[in-house]
């Protein structure tokens, strides 16, 4: 492949907010002449921040799965559902399609995010040149799918609001859903803190 120039080789810097390309004349902090935000070659403390938020997200994910997220009560029958038991219930009660959607949003997507971001962080730190284009693609995938995990939070909120028929039936949110909401926020912040340029950063020295 012929050589593709990178910004740092040409002394250029790119504003992540407005997209303006500027000449980088001296080291030190500078602001974008167009939109006024601070220009940085790389996102600030990307590696550390991304790890910290990812670990925080994972820690929240444990109670999110262990604790029940929703209580359904009808005629004295109290049923506390966790994320997984909610998925199983949907499957058993004849909506396997929905069970798959909820499983994807609540379990598959967050787990994929944990593994993918951790793998991206480790490989970027070791300047691995393994499968760079594929890793870049994985990052973009994680970025796009991140917020769909909020699905279960919205479902619990909506059902808990609607089902209020006094003692006969009741749906109430339980602490698990709060931890789950926090997991989604943390993993979203972790993926925006990750700087995909780290994936390519060692290449120029080769």
């Amino acid at each position: 492949m012929n050589h593709l120039p990178r910004a740092s080789e040409l002394g250029l810097i790119h504003c992540h907010v407005c997209g303006m390309v500027c000449c980088h004349v001296s080291p030190g902090e500078a602001t974008c002449p167009r939109c006024g935000v601070v220009l940085r070659e790389r996102k600030l403390a990307s590696y550390a921040r991304s790890w910290a938020l990812l670990v925080a997200g994972f820690l929240f994910y444990i109670p999110a799965n262990v604790l029940p997220i929703m209580r359904t009560a009808s005629l004295g029958n109290v049923d506390d559902n966790t994320i997984l038991s909610g998925v199983i219930e949907l499957w058993v009660r004849g909506s396997p399609g929905l069970a798959i959607i909820v499983f994807t949003a609540s379990i598959l997507v967050p787990m994929t995010k944990f593994f993918v971001l951790a793998a991206l962080l480790v490989s970027a730190r070791h300047n691995s040149d393994w499968a760079r284009p594929q890793r870049a693609k994985l990052y973009r995938l994680v970025e796009i799918m991140g917020y769909w995990s909020m699905l279960d939070v919205f479902i619990v909120a909506l059902l808990a609001t609607l089902v209020h028929f006094g003692i006969f039936s009741l749906v109430a949110p339980l602490p698990g859903v709060i931890f789950f909401g926090l997991t989604v926020v943390m993993t979203m912040l972790a993926s925006t803190s990750f700087d995909p340029r780290m994936i390519w950063d060692d290449e120029r020295q080769r």
Partner: peptide
Amino acid sequence: MGVLSTADVPGPSHFTVPLLLCEHCDTVY
């Protein structure tokens, strides 16, 4: 200010060749 655009009124068109940067890997086009 550590950053200078090549003209007083900034904008990508003020480089003699307008440039485009990939946000994901810093490649210059």
